[in-house]
Design a protein around this nucleic acid. Structure first.
Length: 613
RNA sequence: GGGGAUGUGGCGCAAUUGGUUAGCGUACCAGACUGUCGAUCUGGAAGUUGCGGGUUCGAGUCCCGUCAUCCUCGCCA
């Protein structure tokens, strides 16, 4: 690190044996004091590390006096000579541990008041405290390191895209509200009272306009804002790596994103990604894993038991099947070793997901056991059937049932019977819970493209809305289905998600660039040409003047970095995050504003404003 | 909007069925100490038990309400 000599000649953390004998000036924070009377020590900290300062019998009087009266987190400047630590006194836990600074002079630059919490990693501090005093948390290693790594990761991404001739465009923060999607954050206009800006939920339309503008390749590390309730992996404002390309199709987008991911993985020192990444059509993901973002590290797959489940004489299965529901289940390899309590927690996961319960049985060589087992065993008087894999005492139907599941002795079988939507949610829940219990999710990263998402999702009231956004192109073979009301839910889109270990990292699509198809799509989601024109005039108009085919992708960087840096919450990779109620404990945002400010904006509040002070 | 958990000196925690002056650790302050590195030793200061109400002779403890934080469902094209 180069230093301007005004405040310091070196960083605390950079001093090593090679600096022994040098006269240096350092500046930093007092991290710790250890005073032995005649000998005293102070640890001085800056971003690069800790260095032990010492005043002993070799130090001048000014050095001793300088180290007296210092308090934790005082900012000081110190002069002295770097020297080797005596035999047996080096500290192997510290990069600077072979040397120390014999202090000749200390200047206190800034005194620190008593701290709300200690600046030490081993101290547990409530998170709202960390947010309120974020600048103190930054002095601790985990947050500092996360911000450094985030910088490095952003740099790797930028490097990769600039090398591929992408243009970085900063799109507006004050933009137009489009009613689809998430709730907007609104900003009132002063010069045109009664009108409002919206903060962008994503730069979607602008990046498409950049394609019409002929930039060909756009990217941005973009802030996006959505006024929705939060989660551990969701913030009201978040950062996306947003990209768009012209004259490309899905394959080009996959290849580009894969190159960017690979350089990121490599640059951050993770195991090299195997390219190309796996792909899985959406319908397969639902069928095999009951999820559009399956964690493929978990090997458990869903098995359809409609045929065999209906022959067991189990009235719950029969009723669900008659009603058009699903009977599906999972085989948990080795799951017979789970305790009753653990199995109950799997069933509880199904119940939490809305299912009535989960029927299960353990499988052993002497036959099945557990609630489901009596429907699998041979009845009194019937000749029991032996499964080829050596499970005794089964009925013919029971053997077929377990064969369908490929169950082996030592396995646990868990089944769900419910209406399709609830069954899938429950199957996903039990698969994940079983995976956690059996510790199946520790393997290498599994990145997968989920492709051919449905174009529409059904609302609770039966209407359709775009599953992705209204500019997503349908798969061309399915174009004809657009106008068929009964077939809408079968229209596939050219949208894709990238999923890492069960977390959706990002999504994108090939866009519609033809006006007629765009209009069909608006019609299909119930937007009249007039309304569509009013809302998206600027985009539809742009498409009249020569629109290239284009496609793009966006990756949620907070979430990606949260996973890559292995932190508990995305708040741990964000410098100044907000709480679960979208407040900022540091600044107190959101706050009431002066009545005069509102008046200037032409806004009348139904709740009282702050009294003018 | 719904559900759950938590809330006690700055911080982490304790306090028996509701019962003495709300304890302990750490940080902080002062003093001591020749090699520590999460120093040690001695002493000191530090509390409206989140807030409001109720029950009771008596509430950190029980009840009602409320606020804050976290998790979660809905929501997040």
């Amino acid at each position: 690190m180069s230093q301007s000599a005004a405040w310091r000649t070196h960083a605390c953390g950079e001093l090593r044996a090679e600096h022994i004998g040098q006269e240096v000036t350092l500046a930093g924070w007092v991290a710790n004091r250890r005073d032995h009377g005649v000998v005293s020590f102070v640890d001085l900290r800056d971003r690069w590390g800790l260095l032990q300062l010492v005043a002993d019998e070799d130090a001048p009087q000014t050095g001793h006096e300088g180290l007296q009266g210092l308090h934790p987190e005082d900012v000081i400047q110190v002069q002295g000579v770097v020297r080797a630590r005596a035999e047996g006194q080096s500290n192997a836990d510290r990069a600077t541990g072979e040397v120390e600074l014999l202090v000749s002079a200390v200047t206190v630059i800034s005194r620190a008041a008593r701290l709300p919490f200690e600046i030490a990693e081993h101290i547990d501090v409530p998170e709202d405290m960390l947010l309120r005093f974020r600048y103190l948390d930054m002095r601790r290693k985990p947050l500092k390191t996360a911000l450094e790594r985030r910088t490095q990761a952003n740099h790797l991404i930028r490097q990769a895209l600039v090398d591929e001739e992408f243009v970085e465009v900063e799109t507006p923060m004050l933009t137009r509200s489009t009613p689809e999607g998430a709730r907007d954050y609104l900003v009132p206009s002063r010069v045109r009272q009664g009108s409002w800006y919206a903060l962008p939920q994503s730069p979607q339309i602008f990046k498409q306009l950049c394609m019409v503008g002929g930039l060909d390749r756009y990217f941005q590390i973009a802030r996006c804002m959505r006024d929705e309730d939060l989660r551990a992996d969701r913030q009201p404002e978040f950062t996306q790596l947003d990209m768009e390309m012209s004259f490309v199709d899905e394959e080009d987008v996959y290849a580009l994103v894969e190159r960017v991911m690979a350089s990121l993985w490599k640059g951050l020192g993770r195991d090299e990604l195997q390219l190309p990444l796996e792909r899985m059509p959406h319908a397969d993901a639902i069928r095999r894993f009951a999820s559009d973002k399956p964690d493929l590290r978990n090997p458990i797959e869903i098995v359809d038991l409609a045929a065999q489940g209906g022959t067991l004489g189990f009235v719950v299965f029969d009723k669900v099947l008659e009603g058009g529901g699903y009977v599906r289940g999972i085989r948990v390899p080795g799951g017979a070793s789970l305790s009753r309590k653990q199995i109950d927690s799997i069933e509880q996961a199904a119940k939490d997901a809305g299912a009535g319960g989960a029927a299960w049985c353990k499988v052993a060589t002497d036959g099945p056991s557990g609630p489901l087992s009596r429907f699998l065993k041979a009845a009194e008087g019937d000749a029991p059937v032996d499964c080829p894999v050596g499970i005794a005492g089964l009925s013919v139907a029971g053997a077929a049932f377990l064969r369908e599941l490929e169950a082996l002795p030592g396995d646990l079988v868990v089944t769900i019977a419910d209406q399709p939507r609830r069954a899938l949610v429950a199957l996903n829940a039990i698969r994940r819970r079983a995976g956690d219990l059996m510790d199946l999710t520790g393997g290498p990263d599994r990145l997968v493209w989920i492709t051919e998402f449905p174009l529409f999702e059904q609302d609770d009231d039966g209407g359709f809305h775009p599953a992705h956004h209204p500019f997503t192109a349908p798969v061309s073979e399915d174009l004809a289905l657009l106008e068929d009301e009964s077939a809408k839910d079968r229209v596939r889109s050219r949208a894709y998600d990238l999923v890492l270990n069960g977390t959706e990292l990002g999504s994108g699509s090939v866009r519609i660039h033809q006006r007629d198809i765009q209009q069909k799509l608006f019609a299909a989601i119930g937007l009249s040409p007039e309304v569509a024109e009013e809302r998206f005039r600027f985009l539809l108009e742009a498409f009249r003047y020569g629109a290239p085919p284009h496609a793009g992708f966006a990756i949620g960087l907070d979430r990606l970095y949260g996973l890559l840096f292995e932190v508990a919450s995305i708040r741990d990779v964000i410098a100044f995050p907000k709480t679960a109620t979208a407040t900022c404990p540091l600044t107190g945002a959101p706050s009431m504003v002066d009545a005069a400010q509102l008046e200037e904006l032409g806004i009348v509040q139904s709740v009282p404003s702050e009294t003018t002070t």
